[in-house]
Design a binder for these strands. Structure first.
Lengths: 150, 150
DNA sequence: CTGACTGCAAAGAGTTTGCAACCTA
DNA sequence: TAGGTTGCAAACTCTTTGCAGTCAG
């Protein structure tokens, strides 16, 4: 993966720096989390001090352009980033718990049908979509939380 | 509608002010637009100078709490507000043109099926959802725009 | 060596808030 | 008159940018 990154960067005349390595590693190790730039910053800070928040932003944006990450907004005005694993590219939605803030992934291809319908009815050419469900996760339901805080 | 607002406010011990009236009117007259706070500000400024941007924010948020408006984020980090007409409450999605920025509404109830599936599979209790499609609208396709200008 | 990259601090954009004056009921 | 509401400006949060020093290749 490290090598893949290096090659991809080289092709664009860019360089592999320790900061870029450590950010990628952090994101990879976490798997399917949905971190804000600030959370990524805190995370890599535990490993090194040689990085700034500005670099985190620049690096995350770079990785988005390289299709290593995907930007994702959870509706609270803060950008989040997640691994762009090709397999779940298009059929990958988010369940956002309004009680505890956790973000759960859900895969389904039901939207294909809807996209076809939209193309026909509205003449709109779809490139991407974003589907989020807000509500109350299983754990919070058990705890008896209402799930409607905010 | 004016009266309805007055009553609704009274029930909460709140008051009907000229600013609140004019904001509601502006939103109602526009029908199904999706304005940012700043756009609402510019709009009402053409009618009166007796209003500030801070009041626009406070008023829009108040109307959201009263279910007169719905907050809606188009993915560019700016909050937009739209009339919360009950009829289209749940089956109401947005097509966002990446080329010209226009926002088109689309109604469909296909998500019901998906929501049922999610409740069962993930045990997640859904309160609301947000579905946005990004792509290229009919007009921009005619003009030969690619529809991916960020 | 060269120019891509970084940290820092300052600037931006959008939104919220404290406070004194104001106005609705 | 009372306290909800407003305008103003300052504060806040998240994100971007300019710049001089640094470092990868």
């Amino acid at each position: 993966m490290e090598e893949k990154l290096k090659t991809a960067l080289h092709e664009k005349g860019l360089r592999l720096t320790p900061q870029r390595q450590i950010v990628l590693e952090a994101m990879l190790n976490l798997g399917e989390s949905h971190l804000t730039a600030d959370q990524v910053y805190s995370l890599v800070k535990t490993q090194t001090n040689d990085i700034s928040l500005a670099t985190i932003y620049r690096t995350l944006e770079l990785f988005v352009e390289m299709n290593l990450l995907r930007r994702f907004d959870s509706g609270d005005g803060v950008a989040r980033y997640e691994i762009d694993s090709q397999k779940s590219e298009h059929y990958h939605h988010h369940l956002i718990c309004l009680s505890c803030g956790s973000i759960i992934e859900f895969n389904d291809d039901l939207l294909d049908e809807l996209e076809t319908k939209i193309s026909k009815k509205a003449g709109f050419k779809i490139a991407d979509h974003c589907l989020r469900f807000f509500g109350c996760c299983k754990e919070c339901q058990k705890k008896g939380k209402p799930g409607s805080s905010q």
